[in-house]
């Protein structure tokens, strides 16, 4: 276990070191297509393929800068937004998409909550209807029962007061 953990630690260290390598952004000439905003528009819809759960437009690592530069190149070649996104999915896997797809198994992520909510609403309606029916049903006429525990407690408390 100890060696395993150390191994993991060293891996993490390598990852962290490489992710946070010092970097400077070279100044672009600020005009003309594609602008930083164009790049961010697409990067916002993507997640960094290596960082844990970080959107690509805000990720500060060297790798992410490379990817944003790549998006810029692709846009300047005349690619559409969708083409860039498709390229990312093909190259780096489905996990780069911020919004899960609505096809195949992944569509379940969208549909199940919807089904659950509908079923839940149905159940709640049934319950409320049940409660209402109970009101309409004739009431049991048995006199109010005091639970034995309660009686016991009252008695004990009376004892304690003495």
């Amino acid at each position: 276990m100890q060696t395993m953990r150390r191994k993991l630690m060293s891996v993490l260290l390598i990852l962290v070191m490489s992710l946070y390598a010092v970097s400077t952004v070279s100044a672009q000439d600020g005009t003309g297509y594609p602008t930083d905003d164009d790049v961010n528009r697409i990067a916002k819809q993507l997640y960094c393929p290596v960082c844990p759960n970080t959107p690509l437009d805000v990720c500060e690592t060297k790798a992410c800068e490379d990817w944003r530069a790549q998006i810029r190149d692709q846009l300047s070649w005349g690619w559409t937004d969708q083409q860039v996104i498709d390229y990312f999915v093909a190259q780096y896997g489905e996990r780069v998409l911020a919004e899960p797809q609505r096809k195949g198994f992944t569509s379940l992520v969208w549909f199940l909550p919807l089904i659950a909510i509908l079923v839940g609403a149905g159940i709640v309606y049934e319950i409320l209807k049940g409660w209402r029916a109970q009101r309409l049903a004739p009431r049991a006429t048995a006199p109010p029962q005091i639970a034995p525990e309660v009686l016991e407690k009252i008695e004990r408390e009376l004892r304690e007061m003495d």
């Binding site: 896997g93 998409l97 899960p100 198994f105 992944t106 992520v109 199940l112």
Partner: peptide
């Protein structure tokens, strides 16, 4: 439930289809 499902779904997806996915904002 919606939050729970979105949070654990990447795990389910990886288990069932072997594909890693992200469920984002």
């Amino acid at each position: 439930f919606a939050v729970f499902w979105g949070t654990v779904f990447p795990l389910i997806s990886e288990l069932v289809t072997g594909t890693k996915i992200t469920v984002g904002p």
